[in-house]
């Protein structure tokens, strides 16, 4: 069965709420990467409401998606998840748990969690793994016995000069492999993030093999984290398609082009759907390269 064609909800949700599901389905998407935040990385306001309100909200989202023949292929937990003290760590976990419950209501098979982006407190890589591991362990514990699987994402870290990338808690293919082995999680390959740190996403995909469960498909020019449409930046998509074919990738094809959409939205929010329509065609082209 062909992988689903999806897109992250973040910017759309901020502007249209549930209505964006209808509009995205109409232009060819049959999957969503549901973000627990809107653009600007602000956590959804529903999480400030009661538990029953949350349940009603996400059940409604699920029904709207079902009604459009759209599956929630993956969700994305809010971030950042940086902390210095145990108290701060507990507060972060307390925020993430309702988002996991929401993911369960939405029927998503995978939930993506960012690593810490902190520079201080990451004096060495082991410390980063240790700190991040405490969060992952708590998350894993909460969803134990469900069909939901946590996936860790690769994230570039900048030093103070921004355009200089440095090692973070989970930056490269080898880091992802460490988390997979140590915490039994899956991996989410953010293609643009790999490209930014100088790793060919095809190389990362081969390293991950069967542990690659989901993707954040996006492109950039290797300078900034642009999150633009696949094929329109510097990534070699044919090489990635070959690698995915080799490892027998069976997942979905979800784009995360929030950077581009946010810039468009500043002038004309409806134009986001024209661009999303082109993006949908590009994702289908990529799927054809992988599965065809």
């Amino acid at each position: 069965m062909a992988g689903n064609i999806g897109i992250a909800t973040g910017v759309f949700w901020n502007e249209y709420g549930e209505e964006c599901i209808d509009k995205l389905a109409k232009i060819g998407y049959n999957a969503l990467d549901f973000s627990m935040f809107t653009d600007g990385h602000k956590r959804l306001k529903i999480f400030d409401e009661s538990l029953s309100d949350e349940e009603r909200y996400f059940s409604s989202v699920k029904n709207r998606a079902d009604g459009n023949g759209v599956t929630i292929a993956q969700t994305h937990l809010s971030f950042p998840i940086d902390y210095d003290t145990d108290r701060e760590r507990r507060a972060i976990v307390d925020k993430l748990l309702p988002e996991l419950d929401a993911s369960l209501i939405l029927g998503a098979p995978y939930v993506v969690i960012h690593p810490s982006r902190k520079l201080s407190g990451l004096g060495n890589f082991a410390e980063g793994v240790e700190n991040y591991g405490k969060i992952i362990t708590a998350v894993n514990e909460h969803i134990k016995g469900t069909n939901l699987q946590v996936c860790v994402e690769n994230i570039p870290i900048y030093n103070k000069y921004k355009y200089c990338r440095v090692q973070g808690a989970c930056t490269r293919a080898d880091d992802l492999i460490k988390y997979v082995g140590k915490f039994g999680v899956g991996a989410c390959l953010d293609t643009g993030h790999s490209h930014l740190v100088g790793e060919n996403p095809a190389y990362v995909a081969r390293k991950l093999g069967k542990n690659l469960k989901v993707m954040h498909i996006n492109d950039n020019y290797g300078i900034d984290d642009d999150h633009i449409m696949p094929y329109t930046g510097g990534i070699n998509w044919s090489q990635l398609a070959t690698a995915l074919k080799e490892i027998g990738y069976k997942g979905d094809y979800c784009a995360e082009i929030d950077g581009l959409l946010s810039r468009i939205k500043r002038t004309d929010r409806e134009f986001m759907f024209d661009v999303a329509s082109t993006n949908c065609k590009l994702l289908k082209k990529f799927r054809e390269e992988v599965e065809g």
Binding site: Y231, T267, T278, K281, K285
Partner: peptide, 29 residues
């Protein structure tokens, strides 16, 4: 040329449509 190289005439046409729409939006500003 970039869009043509990505996906031939189909993607070239997509490019033309996006350009036309974006231009109309700018003109209407």
């Amino acid at each position: 040329a970039k869009f043509y190289n990505i996906g031939g005439e189909e993607m070239l046409y997509e490019f033309f449509k996006l350009v036309a729409k974006a231009s109309k939006i700018c003109i209407s500003l």
